[in-house]
Design a protein around this nucleic acid. Structure first.
Length: 429
RNA sequence: GUGGCCGUAGUUCAACGGUAGAGCCCCAGAUUGUGAUUCUGGUUGUUGCGGGUUCGAGUCCCGUCGGUCACCCCA
């Protein structure tokens, strides 16, 4: 019989990987809450029309879509912004503005898996709706920066590449290029650093432009451009403008963005963008058929590229390792040396756990050596030994290799006292 | 969607077209109340799957599935 493998591009999370995933989620969540964002969640499965409405029919080739028994045409979500737009516009009068929401959840895209790209991935989404000011854009960029710093990724390792679609609109107007050419043009700009210049020149000529004009404009679009003035002032006041670099080639594909656009890039490893986002003032109107016209901006960060970056960045690697150890270790392992004391040991296990102490022990009779080895394997800080001397109980510090003895009646208090002391030894978080 | 490379024990990898192996891991013992080291023994494979060539295929060929990388795309 053929073994059943995971579906192409989907992942198992064994405890080791699951701990990494939890660490990433916890970090995202803690920064978002620090910024005063509220967590929400939408359905993983949506009517396919929701995504067609935003992006057009051709996008369905990269959707996980199928027809249900009830003949509904549905898709696993490739992103959460359409769901967010529906939710926010449906009840927008119930929420004071600005609406600051974040979300963490799986998304799905039917694409060829490769480095930094799977078919199932988790995105962190942060959005601010109902406020069109540059202060909103600044808040989102600041949060993106703080998320990276919270992971231990420094300015040596990442940067924010910032642009604004308005500056290209101004450029196109200056050369009297009609709006119908805008998508084509932005696609050319998106690829300008990767494509050969003859190709780019040819494509630009086709819509009445020249590469020299575009290059000249890009060189002029530095941080002194008026489109960046308010953002620059805001982020400078926070002391984080140095993370930002103006890069006019950032246009974010063909999406719904209308103003500020930015991406988070690693600076050393040539990875895909870690995060991307920007202002999308027309999307709510589009998704609500014009009923709700609400400005919005947001960004999304995926877990796959982020994890690659964390593993390649020494400072982030250290934080990750210590978080993993803290998550996987236990406080104490109860060693039953004299099986006659198992009842007393179980009572102590219950009492210690009730006090919030992380305890493990062996289910059956085991030689003492095995039990101490198990305590070591579980990265326990203490071993609590139940032997013939009961009601005296031995508490052994597995790091310092010292031991003491307490009456069973005072065990919980004594263990709490010992745990409150700073651990002596390496790598205890 | 296109192309390159890869697929052998739980894992990391060997094996000229000629009997499928090793390290690690795991389990047990040496060791009757203390973690290391060491030693001993043990479990595990239709060589991803399906065809073909051959006296004989893990090895060569075709297909397929999966992994990986690049291109396309990247909401």
């Amino acid at each position: 019989m053929e073994p059943i493998q995971t579906v192409k591009g989907f992942r198992d999370f064994f405890p080791e990987e699951c701990a990494v995933r939890n660490y990433i989620f916890d970090t995202w969540r803690s920064v978002a809450r620090r910024y005063g964002f509220m967590e929400y969640e939408g359905p993983v499965l949506e009517n396919t029309d929701l995504f067609r409405k935003k992006s057009g029919d051709e996008i369905t080739s990269q959707l996980f879509c199928f027809t249900t028994q009830g003949k509904d045409d549905v898709s696993l979500r490739p992103e959460v912004t359409p769901s967010l737009a529906r939710m926010a516009t449906a009840r927008q009068r119930d929420f004071k503005k600005p609406i600051k929401w974040f979300q963490i959840g799986s998304c799905f895209r039917y694409e060829a898996p490769q480095a930094g790209r799977t078919r199932e991935f988790v995105q962190f989404n942060a959005d601010i709706l109902g406020d069109a000011s540059p202060a909103t854009d600044a808040e989102l960029i600041a949060m993106a920066i703080d998320v990276m710093r919270e992971f231990g990724v420094s300015s040596d390792d990442f940067e924010i590449r910032l642009s604004n679609r308005e500056i290209w609109n101004g450029f196109l107007a200056q050369f009297n290029i009609t709006a119908e050419h805008t998508p084509t043009f932005l696609q050319i700009i998106d690829k300008i650093e990767r494509a050969r210049s003859e190709e780019t020149e040819k494509k630009l000529n086709a819509i009445g432009l020249s590469l020299a004009d575009v290059r000249a404009f890009m060189a002029s679009a530095d941080e002194s451009h008026p489109a960046f003035a308010a953002l620059r002032e805001n982020l400078s006041a926070r002391g984080i403008w140095q993370h930002v670099r103006i890069d006019a080639t950032i246009v974010r594909g063909l999406a719904y963005y209308t103003g500020t656009v930015f991406e988070v890039f690693d600076r050393k490893h040539g990875l895909r963008a870690v995060a991307g986002g920007g202002r999308y003032d027309k999307l709510c109107s589009l998704m609500s058929d014009g009923k709700v016209d609400m400005p919005a901006a947001g960004f999304a960060m995926g877990d796959v590229v982020l994890k690659l970056l964390l593993e390649k960045t020494p400072g982030a690697q250290m934080k990750l390792t210590s978080a993993l150890l803290a998550a996987s270790s236990i406080d104490a392992y109860v060693v039953v040396v004299d099986e006659a004391q198992r009842g007393h040991a179980l009572a102590a296990v219950q009492a210690l756990r009730a006090a919030g102490i992380r305890i493990d022990y062996s289910f059956g009779a085991q030689k003492a050596g095995k039990q101490f080895q198990a305590a070591e394997d579980r990265k326990a800080r203490f071993a609590i030994v139940f032997g013939a001397e009961y009601p005296e109980v031995v508490i052994k510090n597995l790091i310092a290799r010292s031991q003491s003895s307490v009456p069973a009646a005072g065990l919980v208090e004594e263990v709490q006292r010992l745990l409150a002391e700073p651990a002596i030894g390496p790598l205890i978080a």
